[in-house]
C-alpha cells in the first residue's frame, strides 16, 4: 500500500530515500508552488479527504503533513 512518503516522492519527483519527516518546502527546489498543489491533490485523492485551505498552506513539512492528515482521519 502506498505511504505518505511514497506520495511525497512521486509528487515532488525526488527519491524516496530523501523523504524524511524533516523535509520542508524551504529545503529543496523541487517543492515549489506547483509541486505543492500536485502533492495536495495526490494526498486528497489517496486519503479521500478534503482539507481546509489553511491546512493546505500549513503543510510545510512531511511531519506537518502527517499530523494534518491524521486530523482528517479521526
Amino acid at each position: 500500500m502506498k505511504t505518505i512518503n511514497d506520495i511525497f516522492a512521486e509528487s515532488l519527483d525526488i527519491p524516496l530515500a530523501d523523504v524524511t519527516d524533516d523535509l520542508s518546502y524551504q529545503a529543496i527546489a523541487q517543492w515549489d508552488s506547483t509541486a505543492h498543489m500536485v502533492l495536495i491533490g495526490a494526498i486528497e485523492n489517496h486519503y479521500d479527504i478534503m482539507m481546509d485551505t489553511d491546512d493546505i498552506i500549513d503543510m510545510s513539512s512531511v511531519a506537518k503533513a502527517k499530523k494534518i492528515i491524521k486530523k482528517y482521519q479521526q
Partner: peptide
Amino acid sequence: NDDFLNNIVPF
C-alpha cells in the same frame, strides 16, 4: 513574506 512562498498562496 517567505511563509507564503511555495504553497497555494502565490496562486
